[in-house]
């Protein structure tokens, strides 16, 4: 039986967004150091939705994407971090990362490895900041890079979430790099069993001041 979809109390919601925002700031600084360009990331939004009705958040731009996702697992919290960039942008990002011109339209193992490592660093920044601030510890799986023929968020996450779950906590932010008109998304997904732990750990930090 599916559980009722919960809501974060406003103070917890604000704290969760702020903690994620701090992690995203570090991730932006990391990406900026790697690309030697200014990286901006929007304030994240937080949504809780039923995976069976993903249409609710379909308003994400439909893009053919490169998705790097990495699972993290802890005793209390588990979820996934995703870095999503449209394919042409991912190619340009790979060129920036390697600092040398590559064969046009080539998206070979070297480019993929550069993007994988970048995704790993950015996800590590956001998730690690979250874990540090909530005083918990998480283990990481290896990051995975996939091309996704995307029609919005449905296609981006449908293969990595279980539709029988009652709800998914989704935190997302847009990122843009330099003046390259290169943008993408950073997404954190938590499954329903993380909700209570997240609430409790955030509350604990709020009480501790």
């Amino acid at each position: 039986m599916k559980m009722e979809r919960p809501v974060f109390h406003e103070n917890l919601r604000e704290a969760f967004v702020e903690i994620t925002n701090i992690g995203l700031g570090k991730a932006a600084a990391d990406l900026s150091a790697l690309t030697e360009r200014i990286v901006t990331i929007s304030v994240p939004s937080l949504e809780i939705f039923d995976p069976g009705t993903l249409e609710q958040v379909r308003e994400l731009e439909p893009i053919t994407s490169v998705r790097i996702n990495q699972v993290f697992t802890g005793e209390e919290i588990s979820g996934q971090g995703l870095l999503v960039i449209n394919k042409s942008g991912a190619l340009r990002l790979a060129v920036m990362l390697m600092g040398e011109p590559r064969e046009q339209d080539a998206f070979g193992p070297i480019e993929q490895m550069a993007l994988l490592e970048t995704g790993n660093i950015m996800i590590g920044s956001v998730v690690g900041t979250l874990a540090n601030m909530l005083e918990t510890h998480l283990r990481y799986d290896l990051p995975i890079l996939q091309m996704k023929g995307s029609n919005g968020i449905t296609d981006l996450v449908s293969d990595i979430i279980q539709p029988n779950k009652s709800f998914i906590i989704l935190v997302r932010a847009t990122l843009s790099i330099g003046e390259e008109n290169l943008s993408g998304y950073f997404i954190l997904l938590f499954e329903e069993n993380s909700f209570n732990a997240l609430s409790r750990l955030i509350e604990k930090q709020l009480v501790a001041g």
Binding site: A33, L34, I121, T129, A131, H137
Partner: peptide
């Protein structure tokens, strides 16, 4: 030398005998 910036990971590694911790990138 890792992207895993968690304090818990640093503690584990120091207990196991690493002598430094560098965050990627």
């Amino acid at each position: 030398l890792t992207a895993d910036i968690q304090e818990g990971t640093q503690t584990i590694c120091r207990e196991l005998g690493c002598c430094g911790f560098v965050e990627k990138p």
